[in-house]
């Protein structure tokens, strides 16, 4: 976006209907209100598409810094020039835009929307006086209808953006996964878990199994692992972005929920692996003992 050439000499003569403003030249004959109208007209011409999108409820996640600075500047100028009490129904529209805005950054968007509100207060009487825009003639009902119709599309678009980000992440992750797969899969805690399970199975076969079920010590061990896990260095948590996660994200499930459920799923997988190793070792020891005939069940 081009920086707004607002300076001391902002007021320019009109270049004709629909003509794009050229380099700013000072016109000393204009009054303050005419100057403001001119600024507004030029801004509208420069950012017409973006403004229409905002009014219609399309959200743009990538709000440029230029926009913020521009609106801030405009806000400061307008603050000094226009008194506050010109509240109209445009405020509602401003709020609508605010609520429809995605999850990008609330701080900056709040500033933006404040500016937008202020902007809209000011724009209303001038547009009316110019008679160039049809926005003023729109009733509130129409706007609300449009808002609801756009809401679904807007949500879908934001989700789609998230899914695309996820896809890019997936693409960037692939080579790193190929390189360091083996190293990542067997971290120290996992090896410790497996060895612990095998040793416990041997111990259980030797001493405990006559008195209680073989699954009781295993459950105790799992509880112990849950407590011990915080004392082990956590390997870099790779977020496995699969087609499934992308599909879930597109279907409207929040990313946080998906990541949590994936985490739970992986933990369940770990417990199942432990159980398999434990059970295998137990059976193996049992069969060895039977083979050598030292003990009968």
């Amino acid at each position: 976006m081009e920086p707004d050439p607002l300076g001391d000499g902002v007021g320019t003569g009109r270049e004709g209907p629909g003509g794009v403003a050229g380099p700013s030249t000072t016109t000393p004959g204009l009054t303050a209100s005419q100057r403001r109208a001119e600024i507004r007209r030029r801004k509208l011409l420069m950012n017409s598409e973006e403004r229409i999108n905002r009014i219609m409820g399309f959200h743009r996640p990538k709000a440029d810094d230029d926009t913020h600075s521009e609106t801030k500047l405009q806000l400061e100028q307008d603050k000094s020039a226009i008194p506050a009490p010109s509240v109209s129904k445009r405020v509602v529209l401003g709020d609508t835009v605010c609520s429809l805005a995605g999850t990008a950054d609330h701080g900056s968007s709040a500033i933006e929307h404040k500016a937008e509100k202020k902007d809209l207060f000011n724009i209303a009487p001038e547009v009316g006086s110019d008679g160039t825009s049809e926005l003023r003639q729109r009733s509130r009902g129409d706007l609300m209808e449009q808002r609801t119709s756009q809401h679904g599309l807007d949500q879908y678009l934001s989700r789609f953006d998230e899914a695309m980000k996820l896809r890019n992440q997936l693409i960037s992750e692939k080579p790193s996964q190929e390189n360091g797969n083996a190293a990542e899969e067997f971290d120290s805690f996992r090896i410790f878990r497996l060895i612990g399970c095998a040793l416990l199975a041997m111990g259980v076969r030797a001493f405990v199994c006559k008195y209680l079920s073989i699954f009781a010590p295993f459950l105790t061990l799992q509880l112990a692992y849950m407590g011990l896990s915080k004392y082990f260095p956590k390997s870099e948590k790779k977020t496995k972005t699969t087609v499934l996660t992308a599909a879930l994200l597109l279907s409207g499930i929040p990313a946080e929920v998906i990541s949590r459920s994936m985490d739970t799923y992986s933990k369940m997988g770990d417990v199942f692996t432990d159980l398999c190793v434990y059970f295998f070792t137990f059976i193996f020891c049992h069969e060895l003992l039977l083979f050598f005939g030292s003990e009968a069940p």
Binding site: A182, F272, C276, V277, F280, I283
Partner: peptide, 21 residues
């Protein structure tokens, strides 16, 4: 008794871990 399905699952898992390196 230990059924064939359970034992197959356990064996597959353990052998996969053993052969992973």
């Amino acid at each position: 008794g230990v059924g064939i399905t359970c034992w197959l699952v356990v064996c597959n898992k353990v052998v996969a871990i053993m052969l992973h390196p």
